[in-house]
C-alpha cells in the first residue's frame, strides 16, 4: 500500500487540478475561458490552481491579444504530462487491487 501511495502526486489531489491536467494532456492548448467552462469552476478558483501547477512547472502559458483583449493559452509541459501519467497509473493500480 505504501509503495503505491508513493507514486501519488500531491499536485493532483485536488479535483480541479486533476481536471486541468487531464484536459491539457489531450489538447495541445486551451484558453482560460474554455478551461473554465469545461471544468465548471470560478475565475479565482481556476486562476489559483493554474498558478499552483505553473509553479510545479507542470504547465506553461502564452499571452496573446485577440481583438485587443488579452487571451492566455495554457499547455502542459512534458514534466506535467509525465507526472500526470504516473499519477493515473498509481490510481489504476490502487483501484485494480
Amino acid at each position: 500500500m505504501k509503495e503505491l501511495l508513493k507514486n501519488f502526486d500531491k499536485a493532483f489531489e485536488n479535483r480541479t487540478r486533476l481536471g486541468i491536467m487531464s484536459v491539457l494532456t489531450i489538447n495541445e492548448y486551451l484558453d482560460f475561458n474554455s478551461l473554465k467552462e469545461l471544468l465548471g469552476v470560478t475565475d479565482g478558483n481556476l486562476a489559483s490552481h493554474l498558478k499552483y501547477l505553473e509553479k510545479q512547472k507542470y504547465l506553461t502559458y502564452e499571452k496573446k491579444f485577440l481583438n485587443r483583449k488579452p487571451n492566455t493559452n495554457y499547455s502542459a509541459t512534458n514534466k506535467g504530462i509525465k507526472a500526470f501519467e504516473k499519477h493515473i497509473t498509481a490510481i489504476e493500480q490502487l483501484v485494480n487491487k
Partner: peptide
C-alpha cells in the same frame, strides 16, 4: 478511499471526452 479514486477516473474520462468532442 477507493471510491474517491474511481470517481476521479470517471470524471477525468468525462472531462477528456467533453474537451475533445
Amino acid at each position: 478511499m477507493d471510491n474517491k479514486h474511481i470517481e476521479d477516473l470517471k470524471e477525468i474520462k468525462e472531462i477528456m471526452n467533453r474537451s475533445t468532442r
